[in-house]
Design a protein around this nucleic acid. Sequence first.
DNA 1: AATTTCATCAACCGCCAGGGA
DNA 2: CTCCCTGGCGGTTGATGAAAT
Length: 291
Amino acid sequence: MRKKGRKGEKMGRAPCCNKGEVKKGAWTPEEDKLLVDYITKHGHGTWRSFPKLAGLRRCGKSCRLRWTNYLRPDIKRGAFTFEEEQTIFHLHSLHGNKWAAIASRLPGRTDNEIKNFWNSHLRKRIPKSSSTSKSADTKHAFLPPARHMAEVDNTAVEAEAPRLAMDPLLLSPAGLSDSNNILHEWSSCDGDAFQKHMNFDKVACESEIPTIGAMKFESESIVTVPHLAVSSTSESCDQGVIKEHIRVKEEAEEIVNASESQNSFEADNSSDITLDLLLDIPNDGEYLQYE
DNA sequence: AATTTCATCAACCGCCAGGGA
DNA sequence: CTCCCTGGCGGTTGATGAAAT
């Protein structure tokens, strides 16, 4: 939702500060000291007026960012721990790229830091689209072609919602008009499957890739079905993944069957198709031939 | 040793939501 | 109710150093 410009003003956003007068780029130790000293003594007050008061030739926004991302005393620096990685994966599976929300659950870590860590480290462990999975390097190969929840952020869900709502296999009598509800429901399903597969991954593959749930929309609820997405470096691990995947599919079948018994509006032969859609399994079992 | 490529991360940019006038 | 200001957020960029050639 864009807001209207000011009366009598050209459309377009007014700059937050005079670009000609403010300094940009890396902060110097002197600037850091000025910023910290002032905030320590007076607090930051209004960020817009902060630079002038603190004697800095910086944009207020830049000052805020420098403080919140780097100079704040409670910031924890250094490598992320395994537990933190797990937490990030978990929260990302729930919230998508809501870095601030994720950061709020990781004391001492900033949204910027988490975002960078995700983009430079964790994202690489997520499978690319199934069409490219076969040619992907085997070091970070995934079975089967699965869609990580990381890719199902708000935008994706919103983009998918109309299509899903029109999909006869997934059609819900209640409709899917509100993607926030989808996310909400999704979030409310937090946990067990994810944790289970995190543990599985850890034991079987020493991998930290979480799983996701595939969604099936029912009249008043969403059923989540666990999904495998495992980074693998060994054949034995792949075998384990396949077995686990089969087991998960069986579990999913039970869930789908149970739901279908309450939703007779669906086509009779839809369950298998729906299940495969839920699991993103190619019909020809192509992924099983994966090398 | 020089050059190129890659990875990381601090910082910037533009958009949005919330609140006050 | 509308407009405006501010803080906050997420995506992207660019500087820098490390690794590879």
